[in-house]
Design a protein around this nucleic acid. Structure first.
Lengths: 139, 139, 139, 139
DNA sequence: GTGGTCTAGACCACA
DNA sequence: GTGGTCTAGACCACA
């Protein structure tokens, strides 16, 4: 399962799902044509109300990332991979920018901030299996 | 003025105010005994409803950061500085951790993430004080 | 319904609600895990604005007495019973102390005050359960 | 000085002054014709804004308890003593009733409440010099 | 249905 | 002038 929901980070749950679907597509964990887990199953696994999953999937359809295959479920659209790589870059960049802006505004120095980032990377990176990145560096 | 409100970053306005007051105290921009700008004035300057300011200030009182001086205004409590330095550390650490967890989950490597952080630092820190950076700002 | 609001006794409405929720928990009228009546319903029954109810509930959350179950309502926290028993003792003791201090200051004797208390107990306690009183109710 | 102001008991400051003037008159600490301390002096002694004292004194004039003597100050009205004795009875009875109602509502028994009253009397009565009471028992 | 946030505007006590 | 409380009503996320 490629979703992990954090109900205390201020990001709406449906928004977290939207982001993570895009990330999984950028990642090629989900490839064009591939079906997503059903709303019912996801709702059980994440202990999230189906309406919330639905709302996320509807937004992904309206953005042309997912498409409905009658009677089969929701599949990743053709050409979504590239767009999701771009979207990932943008989504993460925005959030990182917002956090760093707050930290600078709070009076921390570059060095303070970089130290905190490294510390968090040390803590969190170990917890995830290392995956070779398909990340496209900032333009 | 030491407040800057972003109505689109998912963080509630009153919560942003709470954080920034704590930051300003940690910063010694606001010192114990000092009066805060009045609710009405802040409300005008930030174009935020007075009730929203009030809610933030109520929370800060309940946390022992501010105290009400009847008819005069709200003042920073004695001993708030140290506690706010701790709070600042915690608040920023949490948010940075959340963003980095998301970035790792999205498949980025340590190096990808650090590169994005440096890029943002160059952009944002440069807006304040270009000299302090040893990197060439990208603009 | 375990709430009774008096809009003319100087105590803020939201504060009366906070106290009475704690009393009901101390009382075991409300037990840990149990859901409270919804804001909308309480607001109708008490003829009080929902925001006022909300404010009381917010405070109870910040004190760790209630917790929000997303989309379901507000529940009594585990372990709240004991803390509310202590809080009840303290809240009532404070108010009784304040009234007695005023009565003594006004020149009444211990005996005067105790007589007034007995009289009030006879009147008010009789309204609930006349049998429990060993005094003859005055009215 | 016969005033003692408690800014944390929920009763408005001007209301506390009104009550205590009436108590002092009921008590014969203040007798008809006698002048009250000036607003300026009271304001200094109580560390209360003169406007607040003024508001209390205006209410006492409008109730016929005090009268203005041109160029001399405010004096206790003729016949105020008896009315203040009645008022004292009523004011204290109301407040005591309100507290006892709350305690009963909170689930305490008569015995619980009387025990708390006795305990408070033991604590507080010692602090005040014993004064023979001119208290009129409940009708 | 649930609570959470925000705006708009009133009235009050106090300095 | 200051903050504190309350009402009225809107919109949102979630179950």
């Amino acid at each position: 399962m490629f979703f992990s929901i954090d109900t205390n980070n201020g990001v709406a749950i449906y928004e977290q799902i939207v982001r993570q679907v895009k990330f999984a597509i950028a990642d090629k964990t989900l490839r064009p044509g591939q079906l997503l887990p059903s709303v019912r199953i996801l709702s059980q696994q994440l202990a999230i109300n189906p309406n919330t999953i639905n709302r996320a999937f509807q937004q992904l359809q309206s953005e042309g990332v997912l498409e409905s295959l009658r009677g089969r479920g929701l599949a990743v659209c053709e050409g979504a991979t590239l767009r999701c790589v771009g979207a990932r870059q943008e989504l993460l960049s925005e959030r990182i920018g917002s956090v760093i802006a707050e930290a600078l505004h709070a009076g921390l120095t570059r060095e303070d901030i970089q130290a905190m980032v490294v510390k968090k990377l040390d803590t969190l990176d170990g917890q995830v299996e290392t995956i070779s990145s398909s990340f496209v560096p900032p333009t």
